[in-house]
Amino acid sequence: MTTNETENSTYECEETLESSPDSFYLLKLYVLGTTPNSQHAIKNIKNICEEYLQGRYTLEVIDLYQQPQLAQGEQIIAIPTLIRKLPLPLRRILGDLSNAERVLVGLDIQRIK
């Protein structure tokens, strides 16, 4: 269930970002098995990353069903939880990430229309 997607390509989307255009994003998504919320979250974050962070993000999906011991260390209480490890400061986004606006705000990615 763990998915690592690392792509290092030159950034081409500087017009989409205003601030910290070269920031590298390290994201971790904590989900629980195949629950609907978790499935939605995985799909949604992948879309958002591909759309706004192409080539400069790492997304790690962790299934707590298989690795329950990780929940304590990461202070996970809600499922799904997306943690932005980088850039600092640490941010947490709860939910199935269906509200892309709020995900972008939470990740501090600003979209230019």
Partner: peptide
């Protein structure tokens, strides 16, 4: 939980807490 770190985007539940407790 640090409130300032948290953003809500969609539906969620507290399964994380359950998992921790169960573990």
């Amino acid at each position: 939980i640090e409130r300032s770190e948290i953003e809500e985007a969609g539906e969620y539940n507290l399964d994380g807490l359950f998992i921790r407790l169960a573990f």
